[in-house]
Write a protein that binds this DNA or RNA. Structure first.
Lengths: 239, 239
DNA sequence: ACCTGAACACCGTTCAAGT
DNA sequence: ACCTGAACACCGTTCAAGT
């Protein structure tokens, strides 16, 4: 209660690390929409403007926050087959995102920090060792990340549909009750059934991986794409 | 300048339609972040609170806005093969989204309006006529929409990377210059090359469609999924 | 170097009141 | 029914000033 004059913060000194950790805690607790610079400052027991000595922007803060989530993704064990490595990365990324649902909508919107860069590098490198034509690897990368991202988004959308948001749930019921959207009604039913508790994520993942594997080691030529890179190792200066 | 006492608005009477149309124009011009109830009211030459007689929320306004984008997606011609129909829907949705880039991040976040419901219904119905096991159709639906959504997102991300945002561009250059992410550097190079101007979108679309087609008419059984619905037409009451 | 309060230029929305 | 200004409870950030 009676605290020394010079020390402004309750327990810890103000650092970038401490700020980000606290912001992460707030985001996990109340979602990212409730996270304001002012609320964060109050939580840290400091003035709002003190934060701007460690963080250039609110946007930069959120970047750092998302990067913390990317940091949680543990790399696959060394030496596993490429399909297993890809599956590991995909599942670990999904799990990390679902642990921090607020991060899902901002994941692709915010600028990637070092940990997300490393994650991207890892997936690209895994695909580069799969014997795929380089262009197929580049396109496969997006197919895979889009699946992870889309699946996570869908999970939280349907999640908040089914849980607390009773109003939203009623709105869906009303839409369906019109009878104009029978296929949508069936689809919602599918998501509510135990059938969808099966490995939905893995199904589409395998579909993509199967599709990509066909191009491995010249088994199949990419039809719509021009010939891949001729030069095997041209990663020089101007990238 | 001297306008009649009773008429508050410059040119048109205040209606839901007119409000949404004006908001759409503002969003197209300056992006959705610049769109505020106050700015919209100024543009419509009315008091801010007048808007709340036609729109319950800002959220509801944005829902209506996104639904206008969904409305622009023209259905495929009747009678075409299912793959062509899916391709048409996917391409038309992507085109509409790219015409209104502000809609892309909010597309999956905001509640779907009637036009987006109709669009979903259309795609589900197309897949239902493809001879796929129902569960495969339901999962394929997400695979396809995730591809469209992810591709659109990727386009605007890379777009704003390459264009006006010089700061962001420099940040990417700096990240790459570290030399720690050679695969990312190659990947960025791929996106900048004419190679990626090929039909990237269609490649992954075909990959998904090929994968799904294998399950058509019992050619292949879904391995990770339980047997599909037994009852052919059970779309009754409790959806 | 690190921290800060006051002030600026905004937000969305509630409320009570007008016609 | 339709419209509204004032007020409330917030925002992120600039600036000038403190230690």
């Amino acid at each position: 209660m009676a605290r020394p004059k010079k020390v402004r913060h309750g327990d810890a000194v103000l650092t970038h690390e401490h700020i980000v950790a606290t912001a992460l805690r707030l985001a996990d607790a109340d979602g990212i929409r409730q996270l304001s610079m002012r609320r964060l400052a109050t939580e840290l027991d400091c003035g709002v403007m003190s934060l701007y000595h460690y963080v250039v922007d609110k946007e930069a803060l959120i970047e750092a926050l998302v990067d913390q989530v990317a940091r949680e993704v543990v790399p696959p064990p060394k030496g596993v087959a490429w399909r297993e490595a890809v599956r590991h990365i995909a599942e670990a990324t999904l799990a990390a995102q679902l642990r921090h649902p607020w991060a899902i909508p901002v994941w692709s919107t915010s600028w990637p920090g070092p940990y997300r860069f490393a994650l991207v590098e890892q997936l690209l490198d895994t695909l580069a060792h799969a014997g795929l034509p380089p262009d197929v690897a580049d396109l496969g990368f997006h197919a895979l990340t889009n699946h992870v991202q889309g699946f996570a988004q869908q999970r939280i959308s349907f999640g908040q549909l089914e849980s607390r948001a009773e109003v939203t749930r009623d709105r869906l019921e009303a839409m369906i009750a019109q009878g104009k959207f029978p296929r949508v009604a069936e689809h919602v039913e599918f998501h509510r059934s135990e059938r969808s508790a099966q490995d939905e994520f893995g199904f589409t993942l395998d579909l993509i991986l199967d599709g990509l594997e066909k191009f491995a080691d010249g088994e199949k030529r990419p039809s719509v794409l021009r010939a891949g890179r001729e030069d095997g190792d041209s990663r020089d200066s101007n990238a």
